[in-house]
Simulated scan of single mutants.
Amino acid sequence: MEQENYILVKHYCEQTKISDSFIDSLHEYGLIEYKKIETETYISSDDINEIERIDRLHHELGINLEGIDALNHMLSRLREMESELRLLRNRLAIYEK
């Protein structure tokens, strides 16, 4: 079983200057998951890259969270289609030989 590392949101926000309300908003939109343990909130270390990517899209490019959610959906769909295309090409290659 894979062990996940969790980071206290308060400490993460202090280090990165990302507001904890932004983290809450990401969670509300379903863009990231976090755990509440007693009174503290923790994020998975696996979500750090995603949080930083979303922060750049939001603050540097001015994309709102609804737009980021739509972009994530489109990227997910694109990855699925690329995977399907790769599978179909491999199947077709069998008949071309």
Rank of each mutant, 00 (worst) to 15 (best):
S83P: 10
I18E: 06
D20K: 15
L75G: 09
N64P: 01
R86E: 12
E33P: 03
I48E: 09
E82M: 06
H73P: 08
A70K: 08
E38W: 08
N72L: 08
R53K: 14
L85T: 12
A93P: 07
L92F: 09
L78A: 11
N90D: 14
R56C: 04
E84H: 09
E80V: 10
Y34D: 09
D24L: 06
K17P: 01
L78R: 14
D46P: 01
N90Y: 07
E33C: 06
I32Y: 04
E28N: 07
I7S: 12
S45V: 09
L61T: 01
R89S: 13
G30T: 02
Y95Q: 08
I23M: 05
I51L: 00
I51C: 01
S45P: 06
L92W: 00
D20M: 12
E84P: 02
R91Y: 02
L26M: 06
Y34C: 13
Y29C: 02
N5E: 15
L61F: 00
K35D: 11
I18W: 03
L65R: 05
R77K: 13
E2C: 08
K17G: 04
L92V: 02
R89I: 08
R86L: 12
Y42I: 04
K97P: 03
T39G: 09
I23K: 00
L65W: 01
S19M: 04
E2R: 13
K35S: 14
S25V: 04
R91V: 09
E80Q: 13
N64S: 04
N5D: 13
F22D: 05
L8V: 12
I68P: 00
E82A: 06
N64D: 06
E80L: 09
